[in-house]
Amino acid sequence: MTTLAAAAGTEAAPEPAEASGPRRSFGRYLAGKVLGALGSLLFVLVVNFFLFRVLPGDPARSLTRGRVVSKEQMDAFREQYGLDQPLAQQFLTYLKNTAQGDLGVSIRYNVPVSELIVDRMWPTIALVGVSTLLATVIGVYLGMVSAWRRGGGFDRFSTGITLTLYSMPEWWLGLLLIAGLSVGFGPLPGIFPTGGLNSIDADPSSLSGMLDSAWHLTLPVITLTLAYLAEYSLIMRSSLLDELGENYLTTARAKGLRDVEVRRRHAVPNALLPTTTLAALNIGFVVSGAITIETIFSIPGLGLLSYEALSIPDYDVLQGTFLLASGAVIVANLVANLIYGVLDPRVRT
C-alpha cells in the first residue's frame, strides 16, 4: 500500500491550499457581500434623493403640489429645504441628515418622520415576524413533502393550492377572510375583529390588552402566512426536486439508509441551501404584504403609514418608509447570504 500512497502524491498537484485558503476565500466572499449591500444602500439613497428632487421638474412646485403658494412663499420654501444650493451640496446634506436619523418632517402629523417610524414599528415587526416564521416552517414543509411525493395526490393538491395562493393578491385574500371570518357570512357569525390593533376599551399596556392585540393580529397573521408560504413552498419544492435527481442520494441509499434517512440527512439539508438564497432574493414581497395587509386590517404600522402618506402625498414619510423598507430588505438579504456562506462549504472554502 505504501507505493500507492506515494502515487497518490503525484496527482495531488492541483490540491487546494488548506490552512489559509478557506479563510481567505470566505473573507473575500464576506467582503463581496458586504460591499454589495453597501452599494445597494447607496443606490437606494441616490434613488430616494433624485427621484423627489430631479424627476418632476421644480421640486418646490411638486413638493407643494395642489396648494396655492405665492412667489415669496416658494422662495422661503426653497431656502428652508436648501433647494437654492447646488445639487451635489444638497445630496451631501441629505446624506448627512439621513445618517443622523433626520428623515424630514411629516406634513400630516407635523412630527419628525423618524419619530413616526419608531412609533409605528412594533405592530409591523410583530405581524411580519410571526407570519414569516410560520410561513417559512409550513411552506418549507409543504414543499418538501410535495417534492418527495412528486406527482402523487398530496403533491397535486398542495401545488394546486400554493400556485393559487401565489397567483392571488394577498390583500384580496384578506378581504375575503374579513368578509367570511370577521363580518360573518349569511347565518355564520363573525369571529375575528375586522381590523385595528386594539379594542376601544382595552388598555394596550396591560396583559389583557396585549392578548387583545394578539387577537386582533390573528387574522392578519393568517392572511400573510398564507400569502408568504406559497412562495416558500414553491421554492423548496423545486430545490428539492433538483436535489432528488442527484447521484449522491443513490449512494446514500446504497449504503443501506432508509428513505426517510436519505431525505432527512442528505436531500433536505442540501435543498435548503438554494432555498435560503432564493428566499432572500424574494424577501421584497414580505414588505409588499406588510403594506397591503396593514392597510386592509387598519393596523397602525409602517405599512399603513406609507399607505396614508400616499394620498396626501406626504413625501418625507414616503421617502423615510421607502428607505427603511429597502434598508431592512438589504440587511435581511445580507444576513441570508452570510448564513448561506456559513452553511455551504463550497462557498466557504
Binding site: Y248, T251, P269, P345, R346
Partner: peptide, 15 residues
C-alpha cells in the same frame, strides 16, 4: 458495496 461513476456527483457536496 458500489464504487459509483463520477465521484463528484456521487459524494454529497456539502459534507
Amino acid at each position: 458495496s458500489i464504487v459509483f461513476q463520477g465521484a463528484l456527483h456521487s459524494l454529497n457536496p456539502v459534507r
